[in-house]
Design a protein around this nucleic acid. Structure first.
Length: 578
RNA sequence: CGGGAUGUAGCGCAGCUUGGUUUAGCGCGCAGCGUUCGGGACGCUGAGGUCGGGGGUUCAAAUCCCCCCAUCCCGACCA
C-alpha cells in the first residue's frame, strides 16, 4: 500500500475529549472518528486492525469446533417479551418501531434469537453439541459512554452460543471456549488474566472473565503470584493479612482495660486515626445492614477494610441494605445508636453481630461506644462482646494472603475483553427450545454463551501497549507489518531502491506501507511511530553514504543495517518483530 | 437522573468580565509557488466561520438575559 493512495488522517494534537491513552491514540493515529457520543466510525487503518483481530478470533473459534453464522442486528420484541427481558433490560436497550408500529430493538446481545433458531431447527440429541457464533455489531445505550471504544454504545463483538444435552457436555464446550479465548489473547500478544466472575443478569452459574491488564482498566482483579489463583475484586477469597498490633508484640496477649474516650464530631475512620493517633488497623468498624424484614445486622471489620455487601448477602442468603441516618431515627431512636459511633458493645440484643475474619487476632482495638461523641479503646474479643458468626465480609487489601498457597496477593487493574458463561436452561426453558434425547424424552437445551469484544480488544491492546510516541502494536494485529520511509522523495537514487523493496516485499506477501509522501522525514517517522507500525525500513543518508538501508523496531528502537538486495534479511527482521 | 463544565474554521485555543477600531483573531493542519529533506523545516500567497440552535434586551450582541440542543467530567444507576 502506498501511503499517498491510502487514508490515514493523523492528529498532531491531543484531542480534548480523550481521557486515557487508548482513546487519544485511536483518534490521533487515524483509527476512529466519533460520530456521536459512544458511536464511532472505523477509518481504514482501524478497520485493518479490526479485521486482524476478527481473523484470529474466527480461526480459533473454528478450530474449537464452533460454526459461524450471522444473526440480524434488528430484533423483534416478541422473543424478548417471551424471555422476560423486554421489560428487564431497561433503558440500556435501543428500541424502535417500524412503520406499522411494531416494537423492535437493536440487539444488545443475541440469546433470544439464537435460542429461537435452536427451537426451530435443532431437534435431536444427534445434532448436539453445537456451538454457533457470529461477529456482529451490538448496541447498548450506556448511561455513560466513555473512554472511546472501551465503553461505546455501538461496538463489535464475537458472541457464541452452545447447545448441549446436559451439564457434562456443556462442561466440555465451556473448557474448549476457555482454551480458545486464552489462545486468542496469546496469539494477539496481550498480557491477560482469567478471573472467576459474577454471572450477573445474563444468568447462569459459572463464569470467567478475560481481563487484559492495563493501568486504566475499569476492572479490579486480585491474583496470586505463587499459584494460579485469580479472581475479580468482589469475589476474591483470601486470608486476612496479619495486621499486628505493635503493642501486642511488646506484651503478647496483654489485654488492657477498656476506656471511654471523648471524640467530638469524630465520625470517620480517617479522623479517628488522626485524633487518637493510632494505626488504622487498631480500629474496628461497625456497619449496620438491614434485610427486607427490617432485621438488623451489625458487621464488624478492620478499619482499613470496606464491607463487601455481596459477600454479606451470600453469607446470610438475604438481600441487604445499608442503614442510613433516617433508619436510625425512624427505627432505632429508642436505642440511642449513632452512625459514626457504632460498636459491638451494648448493642440492642436483637441485632446480630457478624465479625469479619480480619479482626480475629486483634487486641486492644477501638470501637464506637454506641453513644454520641464517644469511642471505646482497648476493646478485646471475647472479653468484651459476643459474636454471632464469623465470616469473610470484606474486600481484600494489600497484605492479604492467598487462600491456596499462602503467598501475598497482588492487585491489578484491567479491561474485560471476554466473558464466558454457563447459562444452563434459562433461555431454552423460557423460549421452549427442546430436543428429543436418546431416551425419547423432550429436554431443554443446556446452554452456554461466550462473548469477546473485537473493538474493545483493539482499544485494550493500545491501552496495554503504547509509549509516549504512540501505539506499539503487537505484530499479530498491526495494520501493517512494516513501513518504508524514504527520507528524501526528491532523490531518485532513494526512491528507486524504495520502489524495488516495496515491490519485492509485496511479492513476498508482506503487508507493507510505503510512505511515498513528498514531505519531510520527521513527519514520516513521527507518523509511523504514532501508528505503531512494528518495523520501519529507512532509505536515506545511510544508503547514499554506504549503500545500506536500515530497519528499526518500533518496540525498542533497535536498529540494524543491511544491503537493499537482502530481501530475505528484511523479511527475517519483519518476522523478528513479532 | 443529580452535580459541575464546555460549545468560536478540520484540530487546539484566545476574544465574552466592562456590548461598539473585530471586516471575528492566533497556532497547527489544508491549497499554490519556491527553498529544504534522518525525528512534526522555512518564506511568500491563499482557501476555510450562519461564533451550537432559537428567542429576547439594545441604535448596536461572539459578548447581557431566557429556553433548547450537543459534548465532556464526577456521582448514582446498570453489569
Amino acid at each position: 500500500m502506498r501511503y499517498s493512495n491510502f487514508f490515514i488522517p493523523t492528529l498532531k494534537e491531543e484531542p480534548t475529549e480523550a481521557e486515557i491513552p487508548s482513546h487519544s491514540l485511536c483518534l490521533r493515529a487515524g483509527l476512529i472518528r466519533k460520530v456521536a457520543s459512544g458511536i464511532y466510525s472505523f477509518l481504514p487503518l482501524g478497520f485493518r486492525v479490526l479485521r486482524k483481530i476478527e481473523d484470529i478470533v474466527r480461526d480459533e473459534m473454528n478450530k474449537a469446533g464452533a460454526i459461524e453464522l450471522l444473526l440480524p442486528a434488528i430484533q423483534p420484541s416478541e422473543l424478548w417479551i417471551k424471555s422476560g427481558r423486554w421489560s428487564e433490560y431497561g433503558p440500556e436497550m435501543f428500541r424502535l418501531k417500524d412503520r406499522s408500529n411494531r416494537d423492535f430493538c437493536l440487539g444488545p446481545t443475541h440469546e433470544e434469537l439464537i435460542t429461537y433458531l435452536a427451537y426451530l431447527d435443532i431437534k435431536s440429541y444427534k445434532d448436539l453439541p453445537i456451538n454457533l457464533y457470529q461477529i456482529q455489531v451490538k448496541f447498548r445505550d450506556e448511561i455513560r459512554p466513555r473512554y472511546g471504544l472501551l465503553r461505546a454504545r455501538e461496538f463489535i463483538m464475537k458472541d457464541a452460543y452452545s447447545f448441549c444435552r446436559d451439564e457434562e457436555e456443556l462442561d466440555e464446550v465451556y473448557k474448549k471456549m476457555y482454551r480458545a479465548y486464552s489462545r486468542i489473547l496469546e496469539r494477539i500478544g496481550l498480557n491477560f488474566k482469567v478471573v472467576e466472575a459474577k454471572t450477573g443478569v445474563i444468568g447462569g452459574k459459572y463464569s470467567h472473565e478475560f481481563i487484559v491488564l492495563a493501568k486504566n482498566g475499569e476492572e479490579k482483579i486480585v491474583y496470586c503470584p505463587g499459584c494460579n489463583y485469580s479472581s475479580g475484586y468482589e469475589l476474591s477469597r483470601f486470608v486476612p493479612g496479619n495486621n499486628k498490633d505493635s503493642r501486642d508484640e511488646e506484651k503478647p496477649g496483654f489485654e488492657e482495660r477498656v476506656g471511654e474516650v471523648f471524640t467530638p464530631d469524630i465520625t470517620t475512620i480517617e479522623s479517628l486515626v488522626q485524633f487518637l493517633k493510632v494505626p488504622v488497623d487498631r480500629i474496628v468498624k461497625t456497619i449496620l445492614l438491614k434485610d427486607k424484614e427490617n432485621n438488623i445486622y451489625a458487621f464488624l471489620l478492620g478499619g482499613e477494610r470496606e464491607l463487601n455487601i455481596g459477600k454479606a448477602q451470600d453469607f446470610l442468603n438475604k438481600e441487604l441494605k445499608m442503614i442510613g441516618e433516617e433508619d436510625v431515627e425512624n427505627n432505632l431512636n429508642s436505642t440511642g445508636l449513632n452512625i459514626g459511633y457504632l460498636g459491638p458493645i451494648n448493642l440492642p440484643c436483637h441485632i446480630k453481630i457478624l465479625a469479619d475474619n480480619s479482626i480475629k487476632k486483634r487486641k486492644n482495638f477501638v470501637v464506637g461506644a454506641n453513644k454520641k461523641n464517644y469511642h471505646l479503646i482497648n476493646v478485646n474479643y471475647p472479653r468484651d462482646f459476643v459474636v454471632d458468626s464469623w465470616g469473610d465480609f470484606s474486600y481484600p487489601v494489600p497484605g492479604d494472603i492467598c487462600i491456596n498457597c499462602g503467598s501475598k496477593l497482588e492487585f491489578e487493574r484491567g479491561i474485560e475483553v471476554g466473558h464466558i458463561f454457563k447459562l444452563g436452561e434459562k433461555y431454552s426453558l423460557k423460549l421452549e427450545a427442546k430436543f428429543l434425547d436418546k431416551d425419547g424424552k423432550l429436554k431443554p437445551f443446556v446452554m452456554g454463551c461466550y462473548g469477546i469484544g473485537i473493538s474493545r480488544i483493539m482499544a485494550a491492546a493500545i491501552e496495554q501497549l503504547h509509549d509516549d510516541k504512540g501505539i506499539v502494536w503487537p505484530s499479530a494485529i498491526a495494520p501493517f507489518a512494516a513501513e518504508i520511509v524514504v527520507t528524501n522523495p526528491q532523490d531518485d537514487r532513494l526512491t528507486k531502491v524504495a520502489e524495488e523493496i516495496y515491490s519485492s516485499l509485496t511479492g513476498f506477501g508482506v503487508e507493507v506501507i510505503y510512505d511515498d509522501r513528498d514531505t519531510s522525514p520527521g513527519i514520516k517517522f513521527k507518523d509511523a511511530d504514532l501508528m505503531g507500525i512494528p518495523l520501519k525500513i529507512i532509505i536515506g543518508k545511510k544508503f547514499l553514504d554506504k549503500g545500506k538501508i536500515e530497519v528499526e523496531f518500533r518496540k525498542n528502537s533497535h536498529k540494524e543495517e543491511l544491503i537493499p538486495a537482502d530481501i530475505s534479511g528484511i523479511v527475517r527482521y519483519i518476522n523478528q518483530s513479532l
